[in-house]
Design a protein around this nucleic acid. Structure first.
Length: 598
RNA sequence: GGUCCGGUAGCUCAGUUGGAUAGAGCAACAGCCUUCUAAGCUGUGGGUCAUGGGUUCGAAUCCCUUCCGGAUCACCA
């Protein structure tokens, strides 16, 4: 039984015995005492006045006396303005500290073999351009969520759906054929995803020029020009050839996609994310089409005169949704249905989570209804983990205006900043170049990951490049630094032959900072649970920041190795050890590492 | 226009199932390194929690109004 549960039980008993009442769940609130007040746990007495029929102060006193008598670890209480603040004995806290300090699984709930299986889809790139800032948020969220789910006892399968087909790929291919002059990643020294992305841009430029020519010189309207475009017609033709399995087109498609995948792999690796299973839309779209046709034959959907297939969702308060074009080809929705089918054939999925931006809220509402209609019992409770967009201080990223922040560039810049700063501060003197580079990378990525994950995922966020490379204050490096300092203490302890017993002795009086730290540490498992329930890495991020902040205050005010009382020193070293462990775990849940030195 | 999401300090963000005097960081200013890493710590200033109402012992939090911002409503993905 947790301490909160014990306090609740004691309070319930008190109310029953003193006032002869059985309060509802909501009436009894046990929470951590505010930092500016004396005490550890607080019971709010206001809701209980109805049954006590007494003033808040008297009710608080009644309960406090009863609970203190009932529970030996409660050593004192104070009633302040209708709040009953209970103080627990230092020994109680020291015992909790000793338990959690040696528990390798503290805060984590390992998955058993028959634990529910959660599949998490994230990343989901198109193969026509490199990853950018928006993808970074997606990837970091998806990866962190998978670790948080794993820490909450789920078996987790990380998956990715690659949009490798469609008109956009054909645009890049066509541009390469026309103007590429046989360029390859090898011949140009460019990452494959960037090279292909360049051709996509090139197509767009030529297309725009063509439109301009038609409208300005031939006096066409914009629509007329779009219809008359020979480039677009060629791209469409290429798509038809692709769907027909034309050997030459398919071969080029395979080649160029391979370049992109090689490029993506490098980016994923640098970002530190990975997948257990990757699906490709080129494999799933036909499955989706078959399912839609099957649904059509069962009367779930309807076909219009032009041959297109639609789902009528007006009964669910939505409108009609296209599932197959009049020419029989698949749309986005069709592909997602096919992908879902394949996934559920491959795995025994209990919970399906899609990490996709909030601009697709409607899409997933519809997908959920459609899967349900098609008879998948998991359709209705699929989770669309809907996160907000990333904007720049000057507004949205616009590829036309060249304000898109490239993922590879961003990471490189941050590593360079970390390197400069560490060298300037002389932090890693004595490390080999390889060791130092490792730390630069860890700090840079820690900064990026923390920066993006500390914000509530549902909200839009502003990415300020200047702030992202600031490693002071509420940042990933601040947390990593706290960890490095602690590791440094233990290195020094060895050098100075100061022995640490590995646990804290009972019978000490705790100062305020020590007490606060233990209370924070004890709440870590709750934080992991909350983050899991709310699908929010931000809850973890904010918690470790608070913990690190508290630790730094403690560190500043209290001697650790220089403490002469060996018993107090053991307590503080145990605290340091536990804080380092929890910081490391918390950062791990965010997908970030912590260095021993920095 | 319909639907959905959001609005908290100059800026970026926290704020638990409604609880005590709404908190951090950045920026500004003033301090702290001959002691365990100053990527740190301490202090000062900075708020009609967009707005108006309601619910109640108590509202940034729940309900409604209005204003502002964003997303979405494609034979795009």
């Amino acid at each position: 039984m947790t301490i909160e549960q014990q306090l609740r039980a004691a309070a319930l008993e008190a109310i029953n015995e003193l006032y002869g009442a059985q309060p509802e769940e909501k009436m009894l609130q046990v929470q951590l005492t505010r930092k500016d007040q004396k005490g550890d746990f607080t019971i709010v007495v206001f809701p209980l006045l109805k049954v006590s029929k007494k003033k808040p102060e008297e009710t608080g006193e009644d309960l406090g006396r009863f609970i203190q008598e009932k529970l030996p670890m409660v050593v004192g209480f104070e009633v302040v303005k209708g709040f009953l603040n209970l103080s627990l004995s230092p020994n109680f806290w020291v015992e909790r500290l000793n338990e959690l300090a040696v528990n390798a699984d503290f805060g984590m709930q390992p998955a058993s073999a028959d634990a529910p299986l959660m599949m998490i889809e994230y990343s989901s790139p198109n193969t026509n351009k490199p990853l950018h800032l928006g993808h970074i948020r997606n990837n970091l969220l998806g990866f962190s969520l998978s670790r948080i789910a794993a820490a909450n006892g789920y078996r987790v399968v990380k998956t990715n759906i690659v949009n490798d087909r469609g008109i956009h790929i054909c645009k890049s291919m066509l541009a390469w054929q026309k103007w590429g002059q046989g360029a390859t990643p090898e011949s140009t020294g460019k990452k494959g995803d960037h090279l292909v992305g360049d051709f996509y841009v090139l197509f767009d430029q030529h297309y725009k020029a063509e439109l301009k020519e038609f409208t300005e010189q031939k006096g066409m309207s914009k629509e007329e020009a779009e219809k008359a475009s020979t480039l677009m017609a060629e791209a469409r033709e290429m798509l038809l050839k692709w769907e027909a399995g034309d050997a030459e087109v398919v071969s080029l498609w395979k080649t160029m996609n391979a370049w992109v995948y090689a490029g993506f792999d490098v980016t994923y690796k640098k970002l530190g994310v990975d997948f257990d299973k990757i699906y490709y839309e080129s494999d799933t779209y036909s499955v989706g089409r078959d399912m839609v046709l099957e649904g059509l034959s069962k009367g779930l959907f309807n076909r219009r005169d032009d041959g297109s297939v639609w789902a009528d969702l007006s009964a669910q308060g939505l409108d009609e949704k296209l599932l197959l074009r009049s020419d029989g080809t698949s749309v986005y929705m069709t592909q997602d249905i096919g992908t879902a089918k394949l996934r559920f054939d491959d795995y025994n999925i209990d919970k399906m989570v899609y990490v996709v931006g909030n601009e697709q809220d409607y899409h997933f509402k519809v997908l959920s209804l459609l899967l349900d209609r098609l008879g998948f019992d998991w359709g209705r409770d699929l989770v669309h983990f809907s996160y907000g967009m990333v904007e720049l201080p000057e507004g949205k990223m616009k590829s036309r205006e060249g304000t898109v922040v490239d993922a590879d560039d961003l990471m490189e810049e941050m590593v360079a900043t970390a390197r400069d700063m560490a060298r300037e501060l002389g932090k890693l003197d004595g490390y080999s170049d390889e060791e130092a580079e490792e730390v630069y990378r860890m700090v840079a990525l820690g900064a990026l990951k923390y920066f993006m994950l500390k914000v509530d995922p549902r909200k839009n966020m502003t990415f300020n490049p200047a702030e992202s490379i600031d490693f002071n204050g509420n940042t990933g490096p601040f947390i990593q630094y706290t960890h490095a300092r602690i590791r440094s203490i233990f290195r020094k302890a060895e050098e100075k032959d100061i022995a640490w017993k590995g646990s804290a002795p009972v019978g000490l009086v705790l100062n305020e900072k020590e007490n606060n730290l233990i209370r924070s540490l004890v709440s870590f498992p709750n934080v992991v649970r909350e983050a899991g329930a709310a699908f929010s890495p931000a809850i973890i991020a904010n918690y470790i920041y608070d913990l690190a902040k508290e630790y730094n205050q403690f560190y500043h005010d209290n001697p650790i190795l220089f403490e002469e009382d060996a018993r107090v020193r053991d307590l503080r070293l145990t605290l340091c050890h536990a804080v380092a462990q929890v910081i490391k775990k918390g950062m791990w849940l965010l997908g970030a590492g912590v260095p021993d030195r920095m």
